[in-house]
Computed example of a mutant assay.
Amino acid sequence: MTTLWRLTALSDFATLADVVERLDEAHPAVALSWAIFEESDGARLDVLFQSMPDEAAFRRASGLAEDILVEFGPLPEEDWVRLSLQGLKPVEGGRFTLFGAHDRDAVAAGQIGIEIEAGPAFGTGHHGTTRGCLIAFSEMLDAGADPKTVFDLGCGTAVLAIAAAKALPAAEVLASDIDPEAVDESTENCTKNATPGIDCFVAEGLDHAKLAGRQFELVFANILAGPLVELAPGVADILAPGGKVILSGLLTEQEAMVRTAYEAAGLTVHRQPPLEGWETLVATKG
């Protein structure tokens, strides 16, 4: 896994909110993700980067004033999600509630609980992309959808696969990730959530014997805009007629590019309301 870098800035909430608004509008995106946390004496902005950030370039893109001091450094792979979740509470996404072990009593009646601890793999539910997928999936279920075959492409922590297995106990659910560490964590999460029937395996994109000749009624693809575009023809091929794919991991400025790729692959694309600058698309075959 690539070591990420975290930049931290402390100021008042309104000032940092203006910075986040600039980051949301920046094209191309200048960082992987960003979030504001309220502190006792103000607010903290955490920004995650794929590699060591250029502080001057970041200040220009974000409008962060020179008198606001920043700290940044490499974030150990095993710690970055855990650190970013300090102080966060259980998260609801449609009919699903994601929680850590310390919040097992926080799931409201009627909600489907999914226990996910902070760890090295992406997909804790506190990010707009994961929540967007869960909300879109919930809306499908509310509309009467009952897919019997589900595939979580780039599963991370297997949050979405677990949601499918819990909501659709009769469905066959597969989950893959390019990272063996993520697949190990996914397998542990499936056991923890009493969904051991999910088949988790390592695969690069759609290249795996378990996927050869297969079609699925529902596919989750919460990855990144570039891979989503590259995989569009293959995702269309593995969708059964009438099947749907829930796409996320893309910023608002990347939405048109991803939507165009899936429309070109023959799918009808519906845009969900954005969450925190992140987009979720639902594409249907036929």
Rank of each mutant, 00 (worst) to 15 (best):
1 M>R: 05
4 L>H: 08
5 W>I: 09
5 W>F: 08
6 R>W: 00
16 L>I: 07
17 A>E: 15
18 D>M: 15
21 E>W: 11
27 H>A: 15
28 P>V: 14
31 A>N: 09
37 F>Q: 04
49 F>E: 11
52 M>N: 13
52 M>V: 13
55 E>V: 08
57 A>K: 13
59 R>C: 04
60 R>G: 05
64 L>D: 03
65 A>E: 14
66 E>P: 05
66 E>Y: 07
68 I>H: 04
68 I>P: 02
68 I>N: 01
73 G>N: 05
73 G>W: 08
76 P>W: 09
77 E>V: 10
82 R>L: 08
83 L>F: 14
84 S>A: 09
87 G>H: 08
88 L>M: 06
92 E>L: 10
99 F>L: 12
102 H>L: 06
104 R>E: 13
111 Q>A: 14
123 G>K: 00
127 H>M: 12
130 T>F: 03
131 R>S: 04
137 F>Q: 01
143 A>L: 11
148 K>H: 13
151 F>Q: 02
155 C>T: 09
155 C>L: 06
159 V>G: 04
160 L>Y: 05
160 L>E: 08
166 K>G: 10
167 A>Y: 04
167 A>P: 06
168 L>N: 05
168 L>I: 06
169 P>S: 07
183 V>K: 00
185 E>A: 13
189 N>W: 02
192 K>L: 14
193 N>D: 01
196 P>G: 12
198 I>F: 01
199 D>P: 03
201 F>R: 10
203 A>D: 06
212 A>R: 12
213 G>T: 03
216 F>D: 01
216 F>T: 00
218 L>I: 03
224 L>W: 05
225 A>M: 07
228 L>Q: 01
230 E>H: 08
234 G>H: 03
235 V>I: 15
235 V>N: 00
237 D>N: 10
238 I>L: 15
241 P>Q: 12
246 I>H: 01
251 L>R: 11
252 T>D: 15
256 A>N: 14
260 T>R: 13
263 E>M: 10
264 A>Q: 13
265 A>D: 12
268 T>F: 09
269 V>E: 11
272 Q>T: 08
276 E>R: 09
281 L>Q: 00
281 L>T: 05
281 L>I: 12
285 K>Y: 03
285 K>V: 08
